[in-house]
Amino acid sequence: MSEDLTPTYVETGKAFERDMNYVPDRITAGARRPEHGPVAGELWPVEPGRYRLVAARACPWANRTIIVRELLGLQDVISLGTPGPTHDKNSWTFDLDPDGLDPVLGIPRLKDAYEKRFPGYPRGITVPAIVEESSGLLVTNDFPWITHDFFFEWKEYHRPDAPDLWPAHLREEMEEVMQRIFTEVNNGVYRCGFAGSQETYEAAYERLFAALDWLEERLADRRYLMGEAITEADVRLFTTLVRFDPVYHGHFKCNRNKLSEMPNLWGYARDLFQTPGFGDTVDFEQIKAHYYVVHTDINPSGIVPAGPDLSGWTTPHGRG
């Protein structure tokens, strides 16, 4: 197995397009057909202690699953495995654990769980992923539905004061907000960073900052994206915002301004960061190591910047 640490993300002359083909299995109460969303794969039953969430703290898509698990109080119901921040072209690895093995699954690479379920798995080995502990089989890596189902399908096991992350009366608008956040912000920073031409980069840059300006205005008269309570929309935006100044501003050339120079977004991001379940899931050192070491096509030296100063995240946000 190759140990080549040079995955390629930039295609010369092309705009970045994210591969959104994931293993479409879902975990539902009683393995029943869910009320929301597609069923393109197998259904697995909700069962405490059966599954392990594998989610690297460096990855924004994985970070959102860690946050939702914390907010809902599912820590004792679904275990958590955390790969290290760097990976080769083959797999995320458990290099932070003793002997480089996940202590529950006993594997050195997340790829082992993918291959055990799908020998010769042809797509990327991505986090987050849910693995069945007893068999070591991958269940799903379909990240938008993992957090959705944590809320809707694992309700019996939520802590008593868990937040309503998907309020029924706001859901239609929230879906529209989250879709724009995904296409223009969550994925928008990657379109900037992995642009293969000046033209595709500048188009991506304009789209990203148009969306950030929209969010800055939206947050001028409300504490959170949907009003006065935290929802899934806030989780999805937060994981990009918390990486913006340490990574995306410089590494991905998203440099019209820093997050800390947008007053409403900066106050909002600090408000979330200081909320239990958000900032305590963030590891800035792992975040920087992941992007600057793994993306050798845009940072061939592998040097990780010493800055920026991140002490501002714990300063008063004034949004209470």
Rank of each mutant, 00 (worst) to 15 (best):
E3R: 12
T8C: 00
Y9W: 13
T12H: 15
A29Y: 06
E42R: 15
P45W: 00
V46T: 04
V46M: 03
P48I: 07
P48A: 02
R50F: 01
R52V: 15
A55V: 10
V68I: 01
E70T: 11
L80R: 00
G84R: 08
K89D: 11
K89N: 12
T93L: 14
F94E: 05
D99F: 13
D99R: 14
D99Q: 14
L101P: 08
P103S: 09
V104D: 14
L105R: 02
L105H: 04
I107L: 09
L110P: 01
Y114D: 04
Y114R: 07
F118H: 13
P119C: 03
P122Q: 10
E132C: 05
S134N: 13
L137D: 14
L138H: 05
V139W: 01
I146L: 08
H148E: 13
F150C: 01
D161H: 01
P163T: 01
W166E: 14
P167E: 06
H169V: 06
V177T: 11
V185W: 06
S197N: 10
E199R: 15
T200V: 14
T200H: 11
A203M: 12
A203I: 13
Y205A: 12
R207F: 11
A210Y: 00
D213M: 04
D213Y: 01
D213V: 05
W214T: 13
L215Y: 05
E217G: 14
D221L: 15
Y224G: 06
M226K: 10
I230P: 02
T231Y: 09
A233Y: 10
A233I: 03
L237P: 03
T240K: 05
R243W: 08
Y248F: 13
C254W: 11
N255M: 14
S260I: 02
S260N: 13
S260D: 07
W266D: 05
G267R: 12
R270D: 04
L272E: 03
F273Q: 01
G277C: 08
G279A: 04
D283W: 02
F284P: 10
K288T: 08
K288A: 05
Y292K: 06
V293K: 13
T296R: 15
D297E: 10
N299L: 02
N299A: 01
P300E: 02
I303R: 13
V304W: 01
G307P: 03
G307H: 05
G307I: 12
D309Q: 11
L310E: 07
S311I: 09
G312C: 09
W313L: 11
H317Y: 12
R319D: 09
